[in-house]
Amino acid sequence: MFETFNKQDDEAEEGSLLSLYDNLLIHDLNTILQNIRTSSELSDRYIDNPKLNYKLKELIETIKQQATRGFRLLSNINKLSQLESSQLDIYEIDVCDLLRKAIDYVKTPLQNNLTIKIDTPFNEYFINANELLQDVFENILVNAVIHNGNSLIEISINASEIVQGKKRYLQLAISDNGVGIEDARKKIIFDGKKLKVNNGKGLGIGLFLVKKLLGLYKGKIRVEDRVKGDYSQGSNFILLFPKSKRRKT
């Protein structure tokens, strides 16, 4: 089932958003800082031992990744605040261009163990959105990388045009070979009212930002198992974007 969005949902969430941001920000930043501190302390043990230089390099990479995660967390909080406090402009924009930029952003630090395959008949496809659409793609792709324990991270993106009623939509299916999402969590990962810290694990705000932006773009999203019936084989996010009526091709 696709996630849908309406004004009542937004109004119901407004009262608890500040508390939500505070809780998630505090939890996730604590986790990031703890990981950085642990890696730094371990680095002190290896720095004077040439035989353990490979471990030192791994720890430095961990620190870099956690710093990147921290910057993204703050960026997401900032963009959610923008969505709540101002009316963002919507205009005709090329999805394919922003998708390519998002892929370049994600692949840069993880080039050696990440493959992203794209199957699309389009060189360009215009919808009514804005530059924050790139954040939709980046958040889904970054999650696919972070929540993946495989030595080779595989992401596939398939694009097609479908018709629902009398409307044409761009459909993007973004699948990965990560840890997957249990059925119970599938029901709440886009729900701002149910985002919370649970048993030491935050659900994060990336997908909440995705939901809010898709609502702004009049889009739809759902998540399913990459392999039907086995969530542990990875996830498949299906996104629908209404085609711009001004474009005939």
Rank of each mutant, 00 (worst) to 15 (best):
N49T: 15
K212S: 11
N158Y: 11
Y105D: 07
S244F: 09
L213T: 07
I63L: 02
G200I: 07
V179W: 01
E161F: 08
N112S: 10
I205K: 01
I36F: 09
E161N: 06
N150A: 08
L25Y: 13
L152M: 11
I238W: 06
E154P: 00
E131M: 01
T62G: 06
K166V: 03
N6M: 01
I90T: 07
N123K: 15
E161V: 11
I32P: 01
Q8N: 10
N6G: 05
S81P: 00
T38C: 00
F208D: 00
D135H: 08
N23F: 07
I90N: 06
L56M: 11
E131K: 09
Q65F: 09
L203Y: 15
V179Y: 04
S85A: 09
G219E: 01
L209C: 02
S86T: 15
T249Q: 11
G234D: 05
L88T: 13
R185N: 12
N78G: 07
E11R: 09
F237L: 09
Q82E: 14
G15L: 10
I140T: 09
E41I: 13
L59N: 04
I127S: 02
N30V: 02
R247A: 14
K107P: 00
N78A: 13
E41Q: 13
K55H: 15
S39M: 04
S43L: 14
F237Q: 08
I153S: 10
I153Y: 04
I36K: 03
N112V: 04
N49L: 11
A144L: 02
Y46L: 04
D10W: 10
N128I: 09
I221G: 00
E84L: 14
F241I: 10
A159I: 02
K101P: 02
L110G: 01
E138N: 04
V95P: 02
N198A: 08
R69P: 00
F122P: 06
G192E: 03
D9T: 12
N23V: 10
D225W: 07
I127R: 03
Y91D: 08
